[in-house]
Design a protein around this nucleic acid. Sequence first.
DNA 1: GTGAAAGCGCTAACAG
DNA 2: CTGTTAGCGCTTTCAC
Lengths: 337, 337
Amino acid sequence: MPLTLEDIARMSGVSRSTVSRVINDDPNVKERTRQKVLEIIRTVDFQPNMAARGLAAGRTQVIGLVIPMAVTSIFTDPYFPLLIQGVSSACNSLGYSMMLWLAEPDYEQRIASKIVYSALVDGVIVASAVMDDPIVAALNERQKMPFIMIGRLLGAPTANYVDVDNRSGAAAAVEHLVRLGRQHIATVTGPQTMIAGYDRYVGYLEGMERAHRLVDSDLVVEGDFSERCGYQAMQKILLYHPDAVFIASDMMAIGAMHAIHDAGLRIPEDVAVVGFDDIPAAVRAIPPLTTIRQPINRSGAMAAQLLIDIIEHPTPEPRRMLLTTEIVIRKSCGAQP
Amino acid sequence: MPLTLEDIARMSGVSRSTVSRVINDDPNVKERTRQKVLEIIRTVDFQPNMAARGLAAGRTQVIGLVIPMAVTSIFTDPYFPLLIQGVSSACNSLGYSMMLWLAEPDYEQRIASKIVYSALVDGVIVASAVMDDPIVAALNERQKMPFIMIGRLLGAPTANYVDVDNRSGAAAAVEHLVRLGRQHIATVTGPQTMIAGYDRYVGYLEGMERAHRLVDSDLVVEGDFSERCGYQAMQKILLYHPDAVFIASDMMAIGAMHAIHDAGLRIPEDVAVVGFDDIPAAVRAIPPLTTIRQPINRSGAMAAQLLIDIIEHPTPEPRRMLLTTEIVIRKSCGAQP
DNA sequence: GTGAAAGCGCTAACAG
DNA sequence: CTGTTAGCGCTTTCAC
C-alpha cells in the first residue's frame, strides 16, 4: 500500500497541508519543520500520487512529445532517436516525465483530442509537423495547452518553436560548392510539405542567387528524406550531368552516392556531394560525406526546456530559438585530398 | 473550459454514473441510452480527464516503457526505435498512451521510485535490462505494479517476458557456416551482462558443439553491440586467422566488415560473416550481410499487448512469449554467388 | 507558520 | 437499468 500525504503528515506530526507545502517548495514553512518532513519523506521514499496531484493542481509534471508519422519512414533515420533522447534528457533533469505519441494517420485525430483535452500532460512538443497538421490545428484551437514546435510552421506566426537555421546551412553548402569551382550544382530537396525541406530548398536558391548562378529546374528533384528516394532522385538528376549536388539529408545523400557510384561516376571527381544532418553514418560513407551538421539532440533538449518554462512561468510572448548549423568538411565535396 | 462527465450527463438527460458506464463499456446500460450518450460525446468530442480517472479508478490507461541507458550507445542502433514503434503502435490500437523513460544512470533510482509509486502508469515494459537492474529490483520489490520485460532476466524466474529465441538463432548461424565448410568459426559476442548477448553466445557454443567443433578462446571476443567495438573486436580476432565469424549484432558486423576489408581480406572468400538483427543497413552493406532476423517491432507490440492483458485481466500465471528468428541469406556468408 | 475544509472529475458500491 | 453517494490523494483557499 503506497503511502499518502496523510501518512507522512502523521509520521512527522504536522498536517497534510504542511507536507504538501514542503513538497511544493512553498516558502511559508518554518525551516525546522521543512527539514523534519523532508527527512521522513526521504527515509520512506515517498512519491506523491501524480494522478491526485494532476487532478487537484491541474498539472501533471508530464510533457508530451508528438511525432506525426504521416510523412517519413520515421525510424530508419537517426534524427528522431536523437531528438527523443534530447527531450528525455531535459525532462530527467527538470523532474518531468515524457509521454511519447507516434501519431499514425489512423489515430491522429483521436490522439489530438486526447492530448488536448484529457489532462494527461502539461504541454506538448510537436516534432516535424507538416503543414495543416491536425494535431497542431487542435492545439491552436484550444488555447490552454502550451505547446512548442520543433521546426517552425508557416502560417502559425504566434507559435513557440525551436528551429535549426536550415536556410543558412543550405546556403553555406551551396557556397562551399561554388567556391570549389563547381558549375552545375543540383539539389535533392526534402518534402516541401515539411518546413525543414522547404527551408533547405530556399537556402539552396539563396546560395545559388548569391553566386549569380541560374537554377536549372532539371537539376532540382524533390525527395522525402529516405535513402531509397535519394537513390532514385539522383538517378534522375544524373541524366543532366551535374558536377555537384546538395542533398537535403544525409540518408538521402547516402542513397544518392550509391546511385552516382552505380552510374560509374566518381565522388568527388565527377560529382561533389554535400549532405545535411551529420548523422553518424555520414563519417563512414565512402567517401566520407561532407555535410551540414545540425544539433539534433540539443533541439530536443531546448524544446523541452522552453516548454517547461512556458508551463511554469506563463507569459504572453512567444519563446523562439534558432540553432545554428556548421559545415563539416570531409572528402565527398572534393575540398580535401 | 473542458467538459466534464457532469456536463455530458446534463446534455443527455441522464446521471453522471450512466455516462461513466457508457464510457467504460459497462453492459448495464440500455442500448437506447447508450446511443444517445455516445452521440453527445461524439458531437462535443468529449475526452474524460485522465487524472481524475486515474485517481478514482487507480488506472490511467498509460503504460511506461523504460530503457535503461546504462550499457549501450542506445540510439545509433535502430533496435530501440523499432521497439518503440512496436510498443507505440500497440498502444494506439488498444487505447493506451505510452510514457517513455530513458533512464540515464544518474536518474535511475529516482525514476524507479517514480515509476513504481507515483501512479503515473498502469504497468511498465522494461527493455533490455541488465542483470541487477535497479529498476527491475524496484519493480520486483513492490508487487503491485505489473511489468513485463523484453528479454528475459536470469534469476527472475517468475517475471513476465517477451523474448526472441536468441540461442536458436545464433546456433543456426553457426550451423549455416559449418554447412558451408568453414573451419575456424569465430564470434564477436554482445555484452555478457545483457541476456541477449549472453544467449547469443550460448547459441554459438551450442552450434559449435553440435558440429563437434572445439571452441578456440582466441576466436571469441566480447563486444558491446556498437559498430566501433565490432571493428576493434574483429581486428583482435583476425590475428588468429578465422575463415568465418558470427557477430552478435548487425551494427557490430558492419564495423567488423570494415576491419576485415582494411586488413586486405575479402568477404566472403577469406572470411564469411553472419550478423544478427537484420537491421535495414544489413542489406546495403558491401557485400550484403547474411544475418539472423529478429522481429523487433513485433517484440515491442507483443510486450505491450501482454502487459495490457495483465493489467486488464490479472491472473497469477506469468505471460511469456518466445519469438522465432529466421536466417536471411545474402552474400557475406558465401552461400550465394 | 500551520491546520481545517472544500473541492478537482471521475469510479464504484449501493439502493432502488 | 439508473441515480445517489462516498471517496481516490492531493492542492488551495481561508482561518487562526
